[in-house]
Amino acid sequence: MKQMRRRRVRRALEEQCFLWLMRLSLLGAVGVLGMIVGVICWRGAGALSWEMVSSLPEGGFYLGREGGILNALVGSLYLACGATVLALCLAVPVVFYLHTYASPGGRLRHGVRLALDILWGIPSIVYGAFGFAWMVYLGVRASLLAGILTLALVVLPILARTLDEVVEMTPVLLRESTLALGATRLEWMGVLLRQSLPGLLTAILLAFGRGIGDAASVLFTAGYTDNLPDSLLRPVASLPLAVFFLLGTPFPEVQARAYAAALILTIIVLGVSVSAHLSLARLGRYVIR
């Protein structure tokens, strides 16, 4: 009897012990997230000003004189938008092909999913080197176009996998009733597209957020410049690289600008990510389940 009670206490103790361990590790992660945002806000807010986001770097900006990082802000928007659109043009046909024409359990379907998984795992620096290899081969210099093409490769698997998950959730009955009404598979694709529009928006937003924060792929391919991008064939600045280069200078005032640029980047990325989740929650109501 006594032994049984002791065993019960031990089991309850073990349960509580691990429960709190698990809670602690999850709490720690959320705490670290808060701390990252907090530290960036605290150090970045001091140097953040309207001038930072509204003007181009002038002579001596990297020595602490006036100017802003408008070039990087605009450049990053161009890069991320272009890459997302380009990746969309590739991801949408592929994913919808998987769910309409490809036979379930077929080899092509399996192969495409595996390819997307592998592409997703490839580090962006490797994409950067890949883009650079092509640039050397073709004899072109760093440019907005090269940056967009390389970044599209980084964004493509993120977009496609998110979209794949969304389309996967479409009820089977919808497919069967559409096809039973005599629709071709192309017409079924139209229904599927309309059904997954909210998810598509979420995928686009997530991909955009990832694209705007990626630095390693545009490091070789997009270059850096103090001017606004005016042509597809000219180099372009980007926000993550601005943070990196500003932080690399030895002057504290300039490093403070790096913190401010990091804060701007964080605000953009978190804003995009939050709106992605909200849009899925709000627009998802209009989807047939």
């Binding site: 999850l26 992660a29 959320v30 670290v32 997230l33 701390m35 990252i36 530290v39 960036i40 150090r43 997530l206 957020g209 990832r210 705007i212 924060g213 990626d214 630095a215 390693a216 993550p240 690289l241 943070v243 990196f244 932080l247 790096a258 913190y259 990091a262 980047l265 964080t266 990325v269 978190l270 995009v272 990510s273 939050v274 989740h277």
Partner: peptide
Amino acid sequence: LLKPLLDLLVGIPSVVYGVWGVLF
């Protein structure tokens, strides 16, 4: 509630982690 928070952690750019690393 918790999963979107973890997604935010995924979304933060590498360079911001770097700045946090240098600062903290």
